[in-house]
């Protein structure tokens, strides 16, 4: 096990919410039109077809059509539009 995996593993073993305990992103997809990512670390790329979000240990790549950054705060981002796929890279 690597050092950086310890918080996530600990949260998993002790059945703790990983987003709060390990600072991992929480991704909520509502239907095909709305995606919210909490605990993000900023945008990596942004266009109407593809949005990449830095989630710390994971990179969230959202592809779709007419993607729209509806609101962005320091710890949350909401994307709307026709979402085709959400990839964790």
């Amino acid at each position: 096990m690597k050092w950086r995996d310890i918080p996530e593993e600990t949260a998993h073993r002790f059945d703790l919410p990983a987003d709060a305990a390990a600072g991992l992103p929480r991704i909520t997809l509502t239907g095909r039109k709305r995606l919210s990512v909490e605990n993000h670390r900023g945008l990596l790329g942004y266009s109407t077809e593809r949005i990449e979000i830095n989630g710390g240990r994971v990179r969230v790549c959202v592809t779709g059509c007419d993607l729209y950054l509806r609101v962005m705060k320091k710890d949350a981002v909401v994307i709307t539009g026709d979402i085709y796929s959400v990839e964790l890279l």
Partner: peptide, 10 residues
Amino acid sequence: AELHIDFFGA
């Protein structure tokens, strides 16, 4: 976002 300036509809 880092400076806590919320923005909408980007």
